[in-house]
Design a protein around this nucleic acid. Structure first.
Lengths: 204, 204
DNA sequence: ACCTGAACACCGTTCAAGT
DNA sequence: ACCTGAACACCGTTCAAGT
């Protein structure tokens, strides 16, 4: 009966609540977070070192859902493709987190293992060693831009100007919202890898 | 002699100062901006409707430096390529602005004319009408991701872990900082366009 | 060890009062 | 019309005081 009073907060519960805040409102304020936890903002500081640390931890959590490229027998472009998909799928679970996570640094610690394997795949595919990082950057830029695209409001693609007939017409025929973003991601990854493959074959 | 007192502020001078703030510190606070202008924060509100409006105006200003795709006789991929370069070059002048401009909306009003022409080029190249917007999204995602790459600190690509030999070795051989970002952008654009061209030829 | 309320420095923005 | 100082609501963070 005289059970010790339960801990109100845990790193886990705080991160859970913070992610809910971000998913719901796209923002993260310490007061809103505290309210959702039923405490005050200052309590949070006993478990995590401020707002920046919370966002950092959430980015790690989301990135940890990215599957490592499998070391199986499939070809290098299939493996890279599936890794890009896994990356974007993880990001797509919490699109509102993406702009917040951008504020700090871009490349993460935990993702490095994945990067190492991708570097190996690129090298095995025939990319010259001094260009492996450059190609890794290319893939990262596209993955990042596509992730941001997930967070963008679809209204951005509304035109309503009659002096831009080609664009207006194309928008009529196009898919919208998430589906457009998904199709674009797919197409872009394939084009990047096809471009890389074609270039490698040309230089052989 | 009895010259009317000069106006202290203009929309132009405010935007100039704001851009200096952002270039210098990567931030934009109204008080810092006011100090740089030699006035108080509240004065600014007589000319521009708050911080968000300032960033919006700056984004328009930077985007207005993007050259429209020329309607000349060069092939579609050369034209698209030069437009992508112009876009990124404009962004590269003020990399610190990019994350701030992301906070609001992504696609801009003024850029729409450029988008219309790119849509025309894609269609002329043989892209099916319902996929024109999707391809436009692909190009935008990559341009955006590459722009963000410009704002990222280079330390992000420092590893120092011996359990990741491929990545560490690749980093040794790679170029760094701005040069790496430039090379990556170049390579990615070419790969995307080469991929698109190859795909179009396959489906012909 | 964990939680709390009050306090602090700093935001963006508004507004009545000046010229 | 343009500028200003004071005020307001709201941030993130710190800290002495409680249990």
């Amino acid at each position: 009966m005289t059970q010790r009073r339960m801990r109100l907060l845990t790193v886990e519960t705080i991160l859970d609540a913070a992610l809910v805040c971000i998913d719901e409102s796209g923002q993260l304020t310490m007061t809103e977070l505290a309210k959702k936890l039923g405490t005050t903002a200052s309590s949070v500081y006993h478990h995590l070192d401020g707002r920046a640390a919370i966002i950092e931890a959430l980015r790690e959590r989301v990135l940890s859902a990215v599957e490592l490229p499998l070391m199986d027998s499939s070809s290098w472009d299939v493996q890279i493709r599936s890794w890009m998909h896994s990356f974007r799928h993880a990001m797509a679970q919490h699109p509102n987190l993406i702009p917040l996570a951008m504020e700090q640094t871009i490349t993460a610690g935990r993702a490095l293992v994945g990067y190492d394997r991708i570097a190996g795949l690129l090298q095995a595919a025939g990319v010259a060693p001094k260009y492996v990082i450059v190609w890794l950057s290319v893939l990262e830029c596209y993955a990042l831009g596509s992730a941001l695209d997930l967070a963008a409001p679809d209204e951005a693609w509304r035109v309503g100007r009659e002096d831009l007939p080609t664009l207006s017409n194309a928008l009529e025929l196009a898919s919208r919202g998430r589906q457009r973003a998904d199709e674009a991601f797919e197409l872009g990854v394939d084009a990047l890898l096809l471009g890389l493959r074609t270039r490698l074959e040309m230089h052989r």
